[in-house]
Amino acid sequence: MKISEIVNRLNLKVVAGADGLGAEVTGGYVSDLLSDVIGHAAEGNIWITLQTHQNIVAVASLKELSAIIVVKGSSPAADTIRKSNEENIPLLSTGLDTFRIAGELYNLLLK
């Protein structure tokens, strides 16, 4: 499934990195610890996190993740938005908390 379809189905807001919306999603990963994501997320995963600082884009880019979803309606920092546009890694936002958005993504991708 493409990121763009997930955006539509889960009613996500595209904060930045819209050029990357055509990427295919291989699954999801949930963590707020950057070393955990660096060590264990897989290429093409969508990453759900409450972190909003610019290092999340560096991590996503190094791991070739397909997109980042920030939870609970938080607004990513300006630097994060800039990096997301530079790296073409979509930065998506949801009003839901981690548990609910992860559940919805799971139903969409794996059920």
Binding site: D32, L33, L34, S35, D36, I38, G39, T49, Q51, H53, N55, I56
Partner: peptide, 16 residues
């Protein structure tokens, strides 16, 4: 608070 300092860095380096 930034999500660093989880105590996984050196072990990630060793594993990889």
């Amino acid at each position: 608070e930034m999500g660093f300092g989880a105590g996984m860095g050196l072990s990630n380096m060793k594993k990889n």
